[in-house]
Computed example of a mutant assay.
Amino acid sequence: MPTTRSENRDDSHQDEPHNLVELMQAIESIETPSGRIRFDEVLDAIGRRAFGPLLLLAGLVTLAPIISGIPGVPSLMAMFTLLVCIQLLIGRRTFWLPRWLRNRTLPSDKVHTALKWMYRPACWIDRLLHRRITFMTGNLGMQLSALTCVIISIAMPPMEFIPFSVNIAGVALTLFGLSFMARDGLLAVLAFAITGLSLSVVLIHFL
């Protein structure tokens, strides 16, 4: 990826994705001559300062079976979500991630296959996005959502042992991310409901 693009993303929010398709296109544009895509390159592509796109990224990776089925990926996304949400809760404006996390890679062919699979439903979802119930995406709503995502991230590693439960958590993270990108509070409400469902699945399984 050209350096100027990365620098522009660090200096401004104008190039950050505002919906699901834009985020997917940003990831798809990353050049991967080695056949693997570094997590740091994805962060450069979508921006490092906005809570919504980062949360949506974690959700998409966790939601897509072809990617989340790779051993360790759900736990990686759990750590990523936990770090981002804790930093939001303590008031950081730019999210920091450790080098070992930023240097993790995924097979680019699996990433592109997952993006191709998700593109059509993403277009349909984007048409449904509207600014509504905006108090759910204000400062208080964002903090409550971040706290909920902390709980999700803690529950995600055990979910690797429960079929499809990680994908349900991915749906919740995706909806939280989209809600903040589009200021659509209805999606936040749905995300809280799905979070309750995913946590119930874990409790039922282990009790």
Results as ranks from 00 to 15, higher is better:
142 M>Q: 15
58 A>T: 03
171 V>Y: 12
164 F>P: 12
174 T>C: 08
119 Y>T: 10
144 L>F: 04
127 R>W: 08
181 M>E: 07
52 G>L: 14
111 V>M: 14
85 C>F: 05
104 R>P: 01
158 P>V: 09
139 N>Y: 02
157 P>Y: 06
125 I>L: 02
110 K>F: 07
40 D>S: 14
81 T>G: 08
30 I>D: 00
178 L>D: 12
86 I>L: 14
122 A>H: 02
127 R>I: 07
145 S>G: 10
34 S>R: 02
180 F>T: 01
133 I>P: 04
28 E>K: 02
193 A>F: 11
174 T>E: 05
71 P>F: 15
147 L>S: 15
113 T>F: 11
204 I>L: 15
19 N>H: 10
196 G>F: 09
28 E>S: 08
42 V>N: 05
2 P>G: 01
133 I>T: 10
69 G>D: 14
20 L>G: 03
191 A>Y: 02
143 Q>E: 09
60 L>C: 11
79 M>A: 12
170 G>H: 11
14 Q>K: 14
50 A>C: 11
146 A>C: 13
13 H>G: 05
88 L>T: 09
115 L>Y: 08
150 V>Y: 04
112 H>N: 09
201 V>C: 06
20 L>W: 06
61 V>Q: 05
190 L>K: 03
161 F>K: 15
54 L>N: 10
110 K>H: 10
16 E>N: 15
181 M>L: 14
73 V>N: 13
64 A>P: 13
104 R>D: 03
193 A>I: 07
16 E>I: 07
57 L>E: 09
199 L>Y: 02
105 T>D: 13
203 L>A: 11
189 V>D: 00
153 S>K: 04
112 H>L: 13
42 V>W: 06
202 V>S: 12
77 M>F: 04
138 G>E: 11
14 Q>H: 14
21 V>E: 02
21 V>C: 10
122 A>N: 07
168 I>N: 05
174 T>H: 11
145 S>I: 07
41 E>W: 01
163 P>A: 15
38 R>E: 03
46 I>W: 08
60 L>P: 02
181 M>D: 09
149 C>D: 09
30 I>A: 00
146 A>R: 07
41 E>T: 06
57 L>V: 14
82 L>Y: 12
29 S>M: 05
33 P>N: 00
190 L>C: 02
204 I>F: 07
99 R>D: 03
63 L>C: 09
206 F>S: 13
196 G>L: 03
88 L>P: 00
184 D>L: 00
70 I>T: 10
169 A>W: 03
140 L>M: 00
171 V>A: 13
50 A>N: 15
83 L>C: 05
13 H>D: 07
47 G>A: 02
77 M>P: 01
165 S>E: 12
111 V>C: 11
92 R>W: 14
58 A>P: 03
74 P>S: 10
81 T>R: 08
128 L>V: 04
100 W>K: 06
81 T>F: 01
86 I>E: 14
169 A>H: 07
47 G>F: 01
52 G>M: 15
152 I>L: 08
88 L>F: 13
28 E>M: 03
38 R>I: 01
181 M>K: 10
91 G>S: 09
60 L>K: 08
72 G>E: 12
156 M>S: 09
190 L>R: 04
109 D>P: 11
202 V>P: 01
116 K>N: 11
50 A>W: 09
62 T>G: 08
79 M>V: 12
196 G>W: 05
105 T>A: 08
74 P>W: 00
9 R>T: 02
112 H>V: 06
33 P>D: 02
105 T>S: 14
